[in-house]
Computed example of a mutant assay.
Amino acid sequence: MAKILNLARLERKLRRLPKLVVDNIRSEMEAVADDIVAMMKNLVPVESGALRESIGWTWGKAPKGSMVLATAKASLGADLTITIYAGNDEAYWARWVEFGTAPHINKGLYAGSQNPGTRAQPFFYVSWRANKKPAKRAIRKATRNAARAVAAGK
Rank of each mutant, 00 (worst) to 15 (best):
E53V: 06
K13F: 04
L51C: 11
I25Y: 01
R12I: 03
V46K: 09
E47H: 13
M40K: 02
A33F: 03
M29A: 05
V21T: 11
A50R: 12
E28S: 06
N42E: 04
D34W: 00
L7H: 04
R26T: 00
D23R: 08
L51W: 12
M29H: 03
D23Q: 07
R52L: 08
E47T: 12
P18Y: 14
R26Y: 02
R16E: 14
D35I: 05
V21E: 10
D34H: 02
L5I: 12
A31F: 01
D34F: 01
L51F: 12
R26V: 02
L14W: 10
R26M: 00
D23C: 01
E30L: 04
V22I: 13
K13I: 04
L10C: 03
L5M: 12
L10W: 07
R12Y: 07
R15P: 05
R52I: 09
I4Y: 11
I36G: 03
K13G: 09
S27G: 01
D23A: 08
M40T: 01
A31V: 07
R15M: 14
D23F: 05
V37R: 04
R52D: 12
A8H: 09
V21A: 14
I36Q: 03
N42W: 00
R52G: 15
A33P: 02
E30G: 03
P45R: 06
P45I: 04
L17Y: 10
V21S: 11
V32P: 00
K3S: 15
L14E: 12
L20C: 07
V46D: 06
R12K: 13
K19E: 15
D34T: 06
S27Q: 07
L10D: 06
L43E: 04
L51Q: 11
P18M: 15
M29P: 01
K19Q: 15
N42Q: 09
A50E: 15
R15Y: 14
M40G: 06
R12W: 07
V21D: 02
R15C: 09
I4S: 10
V46T: 11
L17R: 07
E11K: 11
S48G: 14
R12V: 06
D35F: 00
D35Q: 03
V46W: 08
L51G: 10
V22G: 01
D35W: 00
L17N: 08
V46E: 10
P45F: 06
M29N: 01
L17V: 14
L14F: 13
L14A: 13
N24W: 00
L10R: 08
K19N: 15
E28V: 02
V32T: 05
K19I: 13
A38D: 10
R16W: 08
V46C: 08
N24Q: 02
P45L: 04
V46A: 05
R52N: 13
R26A: 02
R52M: 14
M39D: 14
M29K: 03
R26Q: 05
R15N: 12
L14C: 09
I4D: 06
